[in-house]
Amino acid sequence: MKPQVITLHINGRTHNIALSPNLTLLTVLRDLGYTDVKCGCEKGDCGACAILLNGVAVNSCLVLAWQADEGEIITAAGLGTIENPHPLQTAFSDAGAIQCGYCTPGMIISAKSLLDQKPHPTEAEIRDAISGNLCRCTGYAQIVQAIQSAAEKMADGGEG
């Protein structure tokens, strides 16, 4: 099938690009330079490619780019920068929740999605929310702590 021009709004930028229908959103995002979206399995088994699509956390490897036409996409890099990080990014950095860092962007997206819906999650809710994001380095303890601590900070009036 011929490529068609689709529109993606990514981290506040708009891209109009001609794409074949068989390309996944993951491939397209990475080709556009959003390499903070990581590829770990291309099957939805690991969560490294998680993004927010119209506010919903999804594996970008399981979405065709055409399906995201006109969609609002936020990646981990769209949540904050080194100078102005999101509270989750600060908490992950300070809690020792980051080792190799490859799962981190996807993990932070799942955490963001959780806190959007449940600003005061229990530990069980946090563990469930990140259960599709595999981490091979940390054993998860410090990640769970980081999300708890970010939730507390955000509840105390920090930015969300």
Binding site: T35, D36, I82, H86, Q89, T90, F92, S93, G101
Partner: peptide
């Protein structure tokens, strides 16, 4: 001390460039 590692924030904000990036 349990200081923030020098490589942590780059990874948290997705700025760290990995081999396939």
């Amino acid at each position: 001390k349990p200081l923030r590692k020098v490589d942590a924030m780059g990874k948290a904000v997705g700025a760290t460039v990995y081999a396939g990036d």
